[in-house]
Amino acid sequence: MSTANKKIIFTGPVGSGKTTAIRSISDIEIVTTDEQASDMTRARKESTTVAMDYGMIKLGDTERVHLYGTPGQERFSFMWDILTEGGIGLVLLIDNSRKDPQQDLKFYTHAFRDFIEAQQLVVGVTRMDTHRVPNVQDYRDWLDQLKITAPVFEVDARKREDVSMLMQAMLMSLAPGAEIL
């Protein structure tokens, strides 16, 4: 049984709602991982923490879908391809209240371009309750400019239904017509 092909990655700038979104949807109390460290062959003296959010959705008795949130600030978050390896898709959360959300969109779609091309991107725009501008259509136009096709939804990371809908769109995009068993 492989866990590698059963993970969904949440990314986006600090404050965009990654931790909250994973918490909204996870079946377990989310953890900020230390777990990666045990996976490493050599433990380091200082405790190494990938401050990555981790949550999980349980399917039936044994099957698990792992949810990872990318850590930290942009410049401290790299090697994203390791995180995404074998992932189902990418949930990009953009905080609509930030100074330049278009730049954020560019940055993250570029950083994850290979993964997005191979899998599926969905974009959730958060904090639209407080910041109405830019609007969803602006994001659609920006994605067009970047030649990326992805559903863009207004989401509030605190609402499970919003996060769920975004993830449903990801799955349905990957497998249109998938039966709901």
């Binding site: 990666q36 460290a37 996976d39 490493m40 050599r42 380091r44 200082e46 190494t48 923490t49 990938v50 401050a51 850590p71 930290g72 401290f76 978050s77 790299f78 090697m79 390791i82 995180l83």
Partner: peptide, 11 residues
Amino acid sequence: GTHNRAVLDFF
């Protein structure tokens, strides 16, 4: 930094 070190270690 610690984050990156951990990610690199993983790699």
